[in-house]
Simulated scan of single mutants.
Amino acid sequence: MEFLNISVVLGLFMVAVVSGQDDVQIKHFTGCESAGLCCDAVNNTCYVPNARRIDSTIGQCFCDSRCLQMNDCCVDFEATCKAKDCIMGDWGDWSECSNSCGLGRTTRKRPIIQLPSFGGKPCPTATKEKQSCHGEYGCLQQSVEYSREEIREVGYIIPANFSIYRVSEAYSPQHDIRKNLFFKNFDNIIPRRTAYKALFRVTHAGRGCQKSEWAKVLKKGDQVCVECQPTSMNKRLERCRGHGVFRANTTWKAIEVSHCHGKWEMITHHDQGQLCKLSDHSFVLV
């Protein structure tokens, strides 16, 4: 009797299993889209069994980006898993100079808007740029209250036409490849700061200036443009001595002209990166 009961239970269980098999629906995937597969790089698990390949054969086809090289993609791979190139955003603004008074560094970045996928073009490695800068916003040297050193200095000048900085390509950082040449050859000798200029009004001039062809324009009341160039900058100060103080009288002296010296008032702030227009009234500090 016990054996009979076991047989009946086992028979009912088998019937239930067989009956359950009739309700199971085995879904057949036809490609990457129906299987919901799209994989980047090499992925041996990213495949669809018994589906049509890109070469029109039937079998195990893949949905990873390497399948194009292996020629075993599913037939709908290119339509479903279309390659996406990296998309970069625009460069942002340059940051403030890292040094508020003196030589520093400024940077800018650009964002990655879309990462590459499925074999698309990769993102460039350069997402950040940097360059040297010279901060002046935190300097106290152009405030009369804190500029006693500048006020006491004498600005020694020559005509701008005589400046080697203007006539020698090796010294010019203003154009293309010469900028790199300039910094490479002279980085250990002169500051990396760019040239700057300011306008001065002559308030006094010695009589000896009238004996010189180029210095005779230095007359009381005349306005002159004066440059400070990297080749003349003091390495420690990163500026030219005697470059003036805004709205203050300082002393100047013409090089190799006897008794040609005087006073002038700086009437514009220093204009970084600019040179004076060449004329009889343009000078450089040395």
Rank of each mutant, 00 (worst) to 15 (best):
Val18Gln: 10
Gly104Asn: 07
Gln142Lys: 09
Asp23Ala: 14
Gly138Ser: 12
Gly155Ser: 10
Phe283Met: 01
Asn50Ala: 00
Asp22Ile: 14
Cys63Thr: 00
Lys211Gln: 08
Arg241Leu: 03
Lys216Val: 03
Lys277His: 10
Leu285Val: 00
Arg148Val: 11
Gln274Glu: 14
Phe13Gln: 12
Val217Phe: 04
Asp64Cys: 04
Gly59Val: 00
Val17Tyr: 09
Ser282Tyr: 02
Leu68Lys: 13
Thr45Asp: 04
His175Ile: 10
Ser19Phe: 03
Val167Ile: 15
Phe246Ala: 02
Met14Gly: 09
Gly102Asn: 01
Arg236Gln: 06
Gly208Ile: 07
Ser163Glu: 10
Ala215Gly: 04
Leu12Tyr: 04
Ser258Val: 12
Arg241His: 14
Ile26Ala: 11
Glu2Trp: 07
Val167Ala: 05
Gly155Glu: 01
Asn71Gly: 02
Met70Gln: 09
Gln272Gly: 07
Cys46Ala: 02
Gln60His: 06
Cys260Thr: 10
Ala254His: 05
Cys73Arg: 00
Thr231His: 01
Thr250Trp: 03
Thr231Ala: 00
Gln141Val: 13
Lys27Ile: 15
Lys277Phe: 01
Gln174Lys: 09
Arg247Val: 08
Ala83Gly: 06
Cys86Tyr: 08
Gly120Asn: 14
Glu153Ile: 02
Ile157Asp: 01
Gln141Met: 13
Asn5Leu: 05
Asp55Met: 02
Glu2Cys: 05
Phe162Arg: 14
His261Lys: 14
His281Val: 06
Leu115Ile: 09
Ser34Ile: 04
Ser279Thr: 11
Lys235Ala: 00
Cys38Gln: 04
Ala248Asp: 05
Leu103Met: 11
Asp222Ser: 06
Val42Gln: 09
Leu37Cys: 04
Lys220Tyr: 03
Arg207Asn: 15
Thr106Arg: 03
Glu265Met: 15
Gln142Met: 13
Glu136Trp: 06
Asn99Lys: 12
Cys133Ile: 11
Val75Ala: 13
Leu285Gln: 04
Cys97Trp: 00
Lys128Trp: 03
Cys46Thr: 02
Cys209Leu: 04
Asn71His: 08
Cys39Ala: 13
Lys197Arg: 12
Val24Gly: 03
Val144Met: 10
Leu285Asp: 04
Asn185Ala: 11
Gly102Pro: 11
His261Asp: 11
Gly206Cys: 08
Met70Ser: 12
Thr125Cys: 09
Leu10Ile: 10
Val154Leu: 09
Glu33Trp: 00
Asp271Leu: 08
Ser98Thr: 15
Arg53Asp: 01
Cys133Ala: 12
Thr127Asn: 15
Gln21Glu: 13
Ile58Asn: 05
Gly244Gln: 02
Asp40Thr: 06
Gln114Gly: 09
Cys260Leu: 10
Glu238Leu: 02
Gly31Leu: 12
Phe246Lys: 06
Cys32Thr: 05
Glu265Thr: 15
Leu140Arg: 15
Cys74Pro: 10
Pro159Ala: 00
Phe62Val: 01
Ala35Lys: 04
Val224His: 00
Leu199Lys: 12
Lys220Asp: 02
Lys84Ile: 14
Leu37Ser: 06
Gly89Lys: 03
Asp40Leu: 03
Gln272Val: 13
His134Phe: 15
Cys61Gly: 06
Cys67Met: 00
Ser34Leu: 05
Ala79Leu: 07
Glu2Ala: 09
Lys179Ile: 04
Val245Leu: 00
